[in-house]
């Protein structure tokens, strides 16, 4: 198989296991490319890509832009914090503008779940969801899968614990779908107030004791506490969150095996993980960032039909 089964990348939900394998395989090639002295290939030189970020982002935006530029695409950027624009109008107006500008692909981050699906119903361009509210963040899940595979050789049969704010996390949801399609076992761990009541229906284990989760897993993906998505208090203080769900070196060293530690970034150092854990040899946080560029190149390349 050399092409994806979908026109857009709206969510991992829509991908088959074959699609995911194809993306990861393609990303391996691009990882080799970006480690060459000349990091650029001409694959997308006839393609124009608009990066629309309706929500703050540093690394995802940079990572996409870098991936696009290394594929020689023409890139235009638009950023707007959702709070500063009138609700509802912006997206539909932006849509019309994109149509007029003959853009080929759109990378969009948006605070509302389903925004990428909404966009895909209105425009011809290919859409890549760079995060839509608490719904999906497919490229993050793909780069996480790539990084696990790179570190452990395979994903099938591995145990992965996702720790933190599951309720507000698109990373958790996309990771669950992606890892399960690749044959991994997934556990979610976090405070009961930040755990969707029906999360077990996705076929994941649910744990509220961090030590038990860490003892169970091969890989721990420590999510960032998304304070900006919490309009009410789900836990009394960051201090108390850290006491219950923070990963420190002492806890990491006390485990019966050496687990891999991941984080989608940006890290709240000292909250979900301490600095010495983030910087330890068990952490693959910076590898994730590097792999992000390769994986996004693969997604852009495949959606553009260049395989």
């Amino acid at each position: 198989m050399t092409t994806l089964s979908t026109k857009h990348l709206l969510g991992i939900k829509d991908l088959t296991a074959d699609d995911i394998h194809l993306i990861l395989k393609t990303a391996e090639n691009f990882k080799e490319v970006i480690n060459r002295p000349i990091k650029k290939v001409p694959s997308l030189r006839d393609i124009t890509i608009a990066n629309l970020f309706f929500e703050n982002s540093t690394r995802t935006k940079l990572s996409f832009e870098l991936a696009e530029k290394r594929l020689s695409a023409d890139v235009v950027n638009f950023s707007s914090a959702s709070s500063s624009v009138k609700k509802g109008e912006t997206l539909i107006d932006t849509v019309n503008n994109i149509l007029a500008m003959k853009v080929d692909m759109v990378v969009m981050r948006h605070p509302n779940p389903g925004a990428a699906v909404f966009l895909s119903k209105h425009i011809e361009a290919k859409i890549i969801n760079a995060g839509d509210g608490a719904h999906e963040h497919p490229t993050q899940a793909l780069l996480d899968a790539f990084s696990i595979k790179e570190k452990l050789g395979s994903i099938k049969g591995k145990k992965i614990a996702i720790v933190g704010d599951i309720l507000h996390s698109r990373v958790a949801l996309s990771n669950i779908f992606c890892l399960q399609k690749l044959g991994a076992e997934v556990m979610v761990c976090g405070p009961t107030t930040l755990m969707p009541k029906y999360i077990h229906s996705l076929g994941v284990k649910v744990e509220h004791d961090l030590r038990k989760a860490l003892e169970w897993c091969d890989v721990a993906n420590m999510l960032r506490i998304q304070l900006e998505r919490q309009e009410i208090k789900f836990f009394p203080s960051l201090r108390e969150y850290t006491m219950l769900f923070g990963l420190n070196k002492e806890l990491l060293d006390s485990l019966s095996k050496k687990i891999v530690v991941m984080h989608p970034g940006p890290i709240n150092r000292g909250v979900e993980i301490t600095s010495d854990v983030a910087d330890s040899s068990q952490s693959i946080i910076l590898e994730q960032v590097e792999n992000g560029v390769a994986v996004r190149m693969a997604v852009l390349f495949l959606l553009a039909g260049r395989a």
Partner: peptide, 20 residues
């Protein structure tokens, strides 16, 4: 709490806020 659809299996998959 400003939920958008029934809280259940589907809301969990869609990341939409559930109304219990």
């Amino acid at each position: 709490n400003d939920g958008k659809m029934n809280e259940g299996v589907v809301s969990t998959k869609l990341g939409l806020k559930g109304i219990p």
